[in-house]
Amino acid sequence: MSLFVPNRYRGKLIVVEGIDGSGKSTQISLLSHWLRSQGYAVAFSEWNSSPLVRQTTRRGKKKEMFTPTTFSLLHATDFADRLESYILPLLKAGAIVCADRYAYTAFARDVARGVGRRWVRNLYRFAIHPSLAFYFRVPLDVALGRILGGRDALKYYEAGMDLGLARDVEESFRIFQGRILDEYDAMAQEMGFHIIDATQSIEAQQIRMREIVMKEIGDNLKGTVLHVPATGEFVAQPSTSPVL
């Protein structure tokens, strides 16, 4: 039984994965700007951002109503809505869809929360197989340093406080992210992740990403993917691609 649905569309799907503080959002943002500047139709989809599900997620988080199962199911609902209403039509149209986190996030995070591994993999079986999946691999301490230095408060579910791992939120975050990291590392080979060493400079990582993109889907970019001739005038326009 295959994990996902094969992508039979003109468009391409590029996803980034990694624990909080791995720098993946910065990298996918840089990559999408670069692709757009080359004249490609680029769209962007972020984990946990469906307008249909937003209020329910907010309610569950605010009132701390989630169990591992409902947390997992509601995130899958959010994912399904973005896939059915947004990502699929764009792939059909020939766009490059960049996704900040994909089903692998659930595979790592929900399992770290105690949800069954086989169950959560089956849950996302309707997902489209990404053309490219990047995994930003970073030691726990480096990621924690970036997160703990840069933000004022860790959130309840982000820190895995619902699991009762530790009373101290920072300690809980450390244990929980450590578990997630273990899950990512364990699936990296099976999932065919392109592993990026996320301790390198931002520039070095971005160069590596672009090389991989050109090597793996460069021919598609010249062929089936939707793009406009790279005239200076068009490229200079500000991009208004919707961010869900």
Partner: peptide, 28 residues
């Protein structure tokens, strides 16, 4: 449900609920 009842009602009012999303929302 306390968690998703309202959200489902709102989603149905919009008539934008796609099939897999609907299945998973009801399962939640």
């Amino acid at each position: 449900s306390a968690l998703a009842g309202k959200g489902i009602q709102m989603a149905k009012e919009g008539n934008t609920l796609q099939p897999i999303t609907m299945t998973l929302f009801y399962t939640t």
